[in-house]
Amino acid sequence: MPDLSYLPQIALSGIAVGCIYGLIGIGFCVIYNASGIVNFAQGAFVMMGGMIAYSVLNTLGLPLPIAAAVTIVAVAAAGVAIERVVVRPLWDRKATMFVMILATLAAQIVIERLALIVAGDQPKTLPQFTDLPPIRLGVVVISYQFLWIVGVSLLLIVLLGQFFKRTKAGKAMRACAFNREAASLQGINVSRMLALSFALSAALGAVAGVLITPTQYTAFNVGVPFAISGFIAAIVGGFGRPLGAFMGGIMLGLTQSMAIVAFGAGLKNVAALSVLLIFLFIRPGGILGEAK
């Protein structure tokens, strides 16, 4: 029996990694809502986030906030590039969802291998954003990176909510989610919305990558596990529902961290996939129900 006094501490680390899964899950939802495409290159954005930030920080010597901003813009551009080069040609030919999943998965593998060639196989990490000793609250220790992860994630959720609710582009993206054809009949350029959704998802993935890297490490091959966790978060939340994906991410993060303590690190993914299976069996619509 593990020592239960660790439980709050474990819960905190679960919440932190859950926020990251949630951001990746939201990335899945944003693209899916705009286009009906499930983009499996989502993990590549997270990997690129950590790797590019590392290079910008260490080769160009820019301060961390600027390096982070440069990274997010660069990864968003990469997202648009994937949309242009991989997704758009298939989309124009009305490819099925399975073709899209395979094509984006292929893009993920290509990016992964390119990262291996360019950056090598050594894991890299980023410094903590705020280099101060962690805060102690009784038995719980809260690191500043935890606060950064949770704070930035919540801020992004609020900003995204406002974007979809208040801005014209956000409303147009929602309109595409409900009825793409009717959206195009209002003068909305649906394929431009597709590019925008890739930029937005890629930026979210990059933020996730930059936030999580200081607490662990990044390497060319971290993308796929993150993509799978984000995908599970999105399904558990009710695919297509950004807020649900975030809740799903936190739930998944908590489950994983509890499983690590109870059964050992090797069973972390067993726990994650069990959550997925339980939801698929009992509540296939997810926490919030299906979007459509």
Partner: peptide, 22 residues
């Protein structure tokens, strides 16, 4: 369009706004 194509989960105001998207 046939079947109206309104954005059912959005408000009437939002639907009208999207009509004037351009």
């Amino acid at each position: 369009p046939e079947g109206r194509g309104i954005f059912a989960p959005m408000t009437v105001a939002e639907n009208l706004e999207l009509g004037a998207y351009l």
